[in-house]
Design a protein around this nucleic acid. Structure first.
Lengths: 239, 239
DNA sequence: CAAATGGTGCCATATTTTGGCACTATTTCG
DNA sequence: CGAAATAGTGCCAAAATATGGCACCATTTG
């Protein structure tokens, strides 16, 4: 039997039985006592907390808190999770934020080093604040699902971004802007772009953007984005 | 060299070079052509998308979108991430929600089956709505970090929960309630408990709860929690 | 056509994992 | 106390697995 499968079988068995002796485990998974002992040691190295009591009535016990998933996530998925948690905690008073952060920190540690750099660059563009309660939210629409990949490419590689925009009065325009920052005023999200044609910053509500596209041939330099005092850039999770 | 390390080395090399031939890779990682071919095949099985072109000028190319992390998360961390994303998306209009969901679905698939059942039971208790803009948020405090583990145990095993509560007027009481639901009105979180002593439901703001403790000897039955119409129970991510 | 590339099957060899055994240390039961 | 039950370690031969080399095939490019 495969090592991986045997480890899983041992964990399952420990979870089911509460307490098991090494010999019981060995019989259950069809391996020798010696091998099970080696597996236990390996599981401990992996982070599983397994208590042991020697003597009559003793045995092994798995701490259920220490059970770990080993999900494989793609980089955009990690970005999305991170943004969600960051936005939520900024929206105020997220319980369990420490745990969510700990999870994200682990995920971040598992990323390739240059992706971590990308992640931090992305987070630097993220500004979070509180929306005025007077804002009319009645026409809030759905976000274009292509936004994240277009934005990821645009922010990370300093590409300009082109999209169709429908403003509050329903007028449609085609825009080409430098994506300088992302502003989150829950539940609304804005792209803060420098519009070269107009020589000024413009805020675009994300749910009014359609057919976004990063212009891979272009680059731009970062500008100082004038934010009000109560809007602060998001500080990265792990310092 | 270790298989794991060699796989990592191959991925790194592919990421750095853009296009590599098998022979270049073999030289770089110090293995034979045959072994590198086997490794490429294994990486593809793991989910890496590697394009190949035969003929002069051909070679291998790694699709950067397919790079995966393999973080190991504990179960409470998964709960915390899930709650964060669920709450955020309910708070309105979370961009990239699909991606975050996809990530969570993967994580959920990697959980042991009984933990998935727990997760769903937990989510059934989660009700999410919109806070009235008139609510005074000035005295919002920090959540007790022990809340999640106490709540997890209490919700999943139907244990009563005991805690100290400080109400809006600053009066402190000690409570023992059945945790029937969790109500999220961002940015505030409430425990909805049936108080047997008072024979009625009570709402407790989570940031006013301290020293929570699941009473492991007790159980209770689920009651119908009277929610207003605009508060809906959170529906699990993967159907 | 020849050269450059990815890809497969086979087999002997190198490496790693496994099982068995002897042994130690600790606890519990009678 | 002594015997039994338990976890844990070190060592070595045997079993299993990974590796490298080779011959070979298919496709593309010049």
């Amino acid at each position: 039997m495969n090592v991986r499968l045997r480890h899983d079988a041992i964990v399952r068995s420990l979870r089911r039985n509460g307490t098991s002796t090494i010999d019981t485990l060995a019989e259950e998974v069809g391996a020798s006592r010696r091998t099970v002992l080696r597996d236990i040691s390996a599981l401990r190295d992996e982070g599983y907390v397994i208590h042991s009591d020697v003597g009559r009535g003793g045995g092994l016990q798995l701490d259920p808190q220490s059970i770990q998933t080993r999900a494989k996530l793609s980089v955009p998925e990690v970005f999305a999770l991170l943004i969600s948690v960051a936005a939520m905690r900024a929206a105020g008073n997220l319980p369990f934020a420490e745990l969510a952060d700990a999870g994200l920190a682990k995920i971040e540690k598992a990323l390739p080093p240059d992706k971590v750099k990308d992640l931090r660059a992305f987070l630097e563009c993220l500004h979070i604040g509180q929306l005025s309660p007077l804002q009319d939210l009645s026409d809030t629409g759905k976000m274009d699902p292509d936004l994240l990949s277009a934005f990821e490419a645009a922010f990370l590689n300093r590409h300009m971004i082109r999209f169709d925009y429908r403003d509050a009065k329903g007028r449609k325009t085609r825009r080409e802007v430098e994506p300088q920052a992302m502003l989150i005023l829950p539940p609304l999200w804005y792209l803060v772009g420098w519009d070269p044609a107009r020589g000024d910053f413009r805020h675009f509500r994300m749910d009014r953007i359609s057919t976004p596209e990063a212009l891979s041939g272009t680059t731009f330099r970062r500008r100082h984005v004038p934010f009000e005092d109560d809007v602060c850039p998001y500080s990265a999770l792990t310092p």
